[in-house]
């Protein structure tokens, strides 16, 4: 079993999966009519394939699913459908302006969705399941995982579309401080990283491809390790590479949520507001935890703590 597998065993299983399916099949006030759904994938990469496979598995027989394997395969002249579910940014951007058919955009960062809405016909029903996690959930993880580390470092580039101030406020209400720094130039990345690491106790990776890409990740991890600063990532790959924790939703988890919205749509013919992922996973790199001397918390324990904090906040 490889590292991913070992860590994966400790991942939170999508325990709500069955529950959500049950809700979907619960006897509604209206008998569900046949619904025609078209899933448009950005392309044929594995994450999108995993999404659509799980999505189909979780739908009842009266919902018929067609698949466009690549965004460009979709055209409005196709046979009409009741709902389009897009997977990935490319698919959503392709479809958005081309049809007024109700649309559920998935696997899309929240800021991208905001841009996308401008392209949609004003009357078109549109919603989304974001790919990113809410700051609230991320802050809860940081506080649950590192109660003794309150200085959270974030390095971002000028192109980042993140609401840094919102994160700052959230952390402040949880007795933690944000140490944020914008990189000054592409060449200064590691000087800026050294600066952030010298002032922080945890480094929170953000989806910013100018910084966190396959070229840089190696030296980012090595540098943070030299400083004894744990990195918190946003995908399983980060933990495989050497991040201490990661909080993320898998395509399968997003698909369960998307199928649930689809089932609801088949009954109510309405779409909910855009939403953050309901299901999520936490990955822990035990080897790194031991080396950094961190008190290791299991993914299960962290999950319990986060859920408790979120219930309290509601």
């Amino acid at each position: 079993m490889n590292l991913a597998g070992r860590i994966g065993r400790r991942l939170l299983q999508p325990v709500l999966l069955g529950l959500l399916c049950l809700i979907g099949f619960a006897p509604g006030s209206h008998a569900a009519e046949d619904l025609r759904v078209l899933v448009v994938l950005s392309d044929s990469k594995t994450p999108y394939q995993n999404f659509v496979n799980t999505f189909k598995q979780n739908l009842p027989a009266n919902i018929r699913v067609g698949i466009a394997e690549r965004a460009e395969d979709y055209s409005s002249s196709r046979q009409p459908v009741d709902l389009i579910v897009t997977a990935g940014v490319a698919a959503a951007e392709w479809v958005a302006g081309r049809t007024a058919t109700p649309m559920l955009a998935t696997m899309i960062p929240s800021y991208k969705y905001a841009e996308l809405l401008a392209k949609r016909p004003s009357s078109a029903k549109t919603t989304a399941i974001y790919l990113d996690q809410s700051w609230a959930r991320q802050v809860d993880l940081l506080r649950a995982a590192f109660p003794e580390r309150s200085k959270i470092g974030v390095l971002y580039s000028p192109t980042t579309r993140l609401d840094i101030n919102e994160l700052r406020k959230r952390l402040a209400t949880h007795e933690a401080a944000l140490i944020a720094k914008q990189t000054t130039s592409p060449g200064s990345l590691f000087d800026d990283l050294e600066d952030i690491l010298s002032r922080s106790e945890v480094l929170l990776a953000v989806p910013d491809s100018d910084i966190y890409n396959s070229n840089n990740i190696r030296n980012i991890l090595l540098t943070s390790y030299r400083h004894d600063i744990p990195l918190v990532g946003f995908s399983q790959a980060y933990v495989n590479a050497g991040a201490l924790y990661a909080l993320f939703s898998t395509p399968e988890q997003l698909a369960v949520q998307a199928s649930n919205i689809t089932i609801s749509f088949s009954q109510m013919r309405s779409l909910p507001d855009a939403q953050f992922p309901v299901l999520y996973s936490i990955a822990v790199n035990q080897e790194v935890a031991r080396t950094l001397g961190s008190a290791i918390k299991s993914a299960d324990l962290l999950r319990q703590q986060i859920d408790k904090l979120q219930r309290k906040a509601q």
Binding site: T46, V89, L222, S235, A237, F248, V288
Partner: peptide, 17 residues
């Protein structure tokens, strides 16, 4: 130019540490 930002979440990395 049209970088698909959702790929940030699904890129694979080598084992560094």
């Amino acid at each position: 130019a049209d970088y698909a930002s959702d790929l940030d979440y699904y890129q694979d990395f080598p084992v560094v540490l």
